[in-house]
Amino acid sequence: MTLVDTNVLLDVVSNDPVWADWSIEQLEAAALRGPLLINDIVYAELSVRYERVESLEDFIAEAGIEMAPLSRPALFLAAKVFTSYRKAGGARTGVLPDFFIGAQAAVEGLDLLTRDTARYRSYFPTVKLIAPGR
Rank of each mutant, 00 (worst) to 15 (best):
T83Q: 11
E25P: 00
L46M: 09
E25L: 12
K80W: 05
T93W: 07
R49W: 04
A63R: 06
V53W: 01
Y43N: 03
V42H: 03
K87I: 08
D58Y: 01
A61D: 09
Y123L: 06
I101V: 14
G102M: 14
D40W: 00
I130V: 14
D11A: 08
F100T: 05
N7G: 12
T93F: 07
Q26R: 15
S14M: 08
V81N: 05
R52M: 03
A30L: 12
R52W: 05
L112A: 08
A118I: 05
T83E: 11
L70Y: 00
E25Q: 12
E108N: 06
V4I: 10
T6G: 01
P73L: 00
L70I: 12
F100Q: 11
L10D: 03
G133A: 08
P125M: 06
T6F: 02
L32C: 12
R121P: 09
A63H: 02
S122G: 03
Q104W: 12
R92K: 15
D58L: 14
I41V: 14
V18T: 13
D116V: 02
V107K: 15
E57P: 00
Y85C: 04
R115G: 09
A88T: 08
L37Q: 04
L113P: 13
D5T: 10
I60P: 00
M1C: 07
I101S: 10
F76N: 11
D58A: 15
V107Y: 07
R86A: 15
F124A: 07
W22P: 09
R49S: 15
T2K: 06
N7I: 10
P17M: 13
V13W: 08
S71M: 04
S47I: 01
G102E: 09
I41N: 01
E57V: 03
L32N: 14
I130N: 05
S14Y: 01
S71C: 02
A91P: 15
V42F: 02
I38T: 07
A131E: 10
I41H: 02
Y120A: 15
N15R: 10
I24V: 13
V8K: 06
T126N: 03
W22A: 09
Q26V: 01
A78G: 05
Y120W: 04
R49A: 15
A78D: 04
D111G: 13
L3T: 04
L37F: 07
P17S: 15
T83L: 11
E45N: 06
N15L: 13
R134H: 08
R72W: 06
F124I: 12
R72F: 10
L75N: 00
A131L: 04
D11L: 07
Y123V: 07
I41F: 03
R92S: 14
A105T: 15
L113M: 11
P125T: 11
T83G: 07
F99V: 09
A61W: 00
I101R: 12
S55C: 00
V48C: 01
S55H: 15
V53N: 01
D11V: 05
L36N: 06
P125I: 07
V127Q: 01
A91G: 13
A105I: 15
